[in-house]
Design a protein around this nucleic acid. Structure first.
Lengths: 126, 126
DNA sequence: CCGCATCCCTGAGGATACTG
DNA sequence: CAGTATCCTCAGGGATGCGG
């Protein structure tokens, strides 16, 4: 069975814009994806290191998300033939092109959170 | 039970950046959310109009997504006391602040799709 | 160390039917 | 017209255990 690289959420061919948006959304949508990207941003890391840093993720999910990222060309996997085999993951240049989007979303989310909290305290709604 | 406005995907308080990102992601994540926003962009619409334009969505989902959007202050709901009651939905100014993000994601997704397709045809991988 | 296989559970989302 | 209620499905994701 082929792996899904490009999502197919939209049934009718309405609005390419939408399809394109959903492609991006699908990629960023994994529960740990962005955290992994963030952890990989400073430099290459091994599987174990990632699992320790991302804390909370199981090996299954980590491996799965890494595969997805690799399929999409966002990270590079390289096997080192050390004693017990080790594997290094690193962000590709292409992977870094996601940063502006992630940052913008984070920025919007930050001000949104502040906005919501302000509203709540004003209305004394809790 | 209180409605969820701000997501709580991240357990430990690691990285505010991440939390902020996920707030935005949660909002945009509904299957129909962006399509609804897109349909509302040109101007106000009624429930039925939306359901017709978005085609494929059921009334349950539409109503649920609209409520979420309203809770987040992205759209405004106004009841008209016409013969059989009608309701109008419209994007708020705040809701429009999402446009840059949506556009950027769509743009990235578009070039990503092209990139993937190009790779596939090159490798003759299918 | 790096994963894959397996089982299980939860929640998003669809179908359908019903009210004001 | 504008929803709400109910039931059902299915894929995302967690826990655990095994093999190279």
């Amino acid at each position: 069975m082929r792996k899904k690289i490009i999502g197919e959420k939209i049934p009718t061919d309405c609005k390419q814009h939408l399809k394109a948006f959903n492609d991006t959304l699908d990629i960023l949508n994994g529960k740990w994806i962005v955290m992994i990207i963030g952890c990989l941003a400073p430099g290459k890391k091994q599987f174990m290191e990632l699992q320790r840093v991302v804390e909370g993720i199981g090996s299954k999910m980590l491996s799965k998300e890494l595969q997805e990222l690799e399929l999409n060309g966002l990270i590079k996997r390289s096997v080192q033939d050390t004693k017990p085999i080790t594997v290094e993951y690193e962000l590709t240049a292409y992977g870094r092109t996601l940063k502006p989007i992630i940052d913008e979303m984070a920025s919007w989310g930050k001000q949104h959170r502040e906005r919501v909290i302000k509203e709540m305290t004003e209305k004394n709604d809790f």
